[in-house]
Design a binder for these strands. Structure first.
Lengths: 194, 194
DNA sequence: GAAATAAAACCGACTGGTCGGTTTGTTTTT
DNA sequence: AAAAACAAACCGACCAGTCGGTTTTATTTC
């Protein structure tokens, strides 16, 4: 039974998310994570080659989540998909708000490494491809006016990223959830054929 | 004459910008900065209380730059101002691209400190106020349709921040300058009364 | 205006502590 | 018993900040 082994791995992953998001990637040391997971450093380095590799493993998990969400919305119409995304906003916003700081911190200091850069950029590119395809489909279906899918995708992602950053910088500066909803609505309305 | 003193201070500031932007805030050590500036650690700590205080001094300088730019555009009409901003885009984009990573890195790890958070959030709030006022003025003047200045300002900043982040993450993923230009044009066109 | 004094600027070795990662040894699993 | 999983002590590099002392600059005194 390697069940115990798998459990240890999961415990490490859980503690890592918890500490990375609460303290930041650098501030949360390997020792901290081990302590929180209730295991030793030896166990940690048995499961992960390095702190960075641990983070990459977390990234993989998120990528999986993205792919699942994309897969789940495969059979909807384009406007329906956008509706669903808008509805899921509070959850997405919260999750992203938790994950963005640690991702940024990690990325800012590690992105000079080619391999790590590749891994970090992957989720972003996947999102971009997803939105581009979605908008293209919407245009082809005739539910959207003729927009440039590439550009529009970038703009949607900009809005999301930018709002996320703003809400992080100045959490009490606005009712961010409402701002996010209004922005999305405006963007989608601008595309919808009437 | 404390001219020499002032020169040293400036040398530190210069080296700091250079190293913070090329290596990142954490990776650039105080020793590195001293070496680059050609001064000793003692001189450094004579001029700045800490590495953080040094960064806050840099922030102050940028804030000044923002204020000057705002001041300079005081007598233009609103559409003229937007035109000018759009034209200055390449320069703004480049500068921001250089400064954003170090700012983010600093902010991510230091923002738990109330004083530092205050200082960091200041430039952002100033921009937001600037755009809000500008749009309000545009609406009052009658050159813009009735939009919500608060929301629109957030959206403009989102777009800028988001594009900046995207261009940092995936520099070769698109012609970012063009994307930025197109996005701005779209946003402004959406507001202009025809 | 030259010597004496005070003050500011500057130097660089050193400290205390952190942290990622390694090594060596022990327990559990199969 | 061999291999995988885990524990615990340990290593070495790094780095922000300190401190005693030196040099330069400004001010006062005679």
């Amino acid at each position: 039974m390697q069940q115990r082994s798998e459990e240890t791995r999961l415990k490490i992953l859980e503690s890592a998310v918890k500490l990375f998001s609460s303290r930041g990637f650098n501030a949360a040391s390997v020792d901290d994570i081990c302590a929180d997971a209730g295991i030793s450093k030896g166990a940690f380095y048995h499961h992960f080659k390095s702190k960075q590799e641990l983070f990459l493993a977390l990234l993989d998990g998120w990528l999986q989540t993205i792919d699942n969400a994309i897969e789940a919305s495969k059979d909807m119409t384009v406007p329906e998909t956008f509706m669903q995304i808008t509805e899921a906003f509070p959850y997405i916003f919260e999750t992203a708000n938790e994950g963005l700081p640690m991702f940024l911190e990690f990325w800012l200091q590690a992105s000079r490494d080619e391999k790590i850069w590749q891994a970090s950029v992957k989720p972003y590119r996947r999102y971009h491809k997803y939105f581009t395809d979605l908008i293209k489909k919407g245009v082809d279906e005739g539910s959207f006016v003729e927009v440039d899918p590439e550009l529009t995708s970038r703009m949607i992602i900009s809005t999301a990223m930018g709002l996320l950053l703003q809400s992080l910088m100045d959490p009490k500066g606005a009712k961010w959830e409402k701002v996010a909803r209004d922005s999305t609505t405006m963007l989608v309305n601008g595309m919808l054929k009437k």
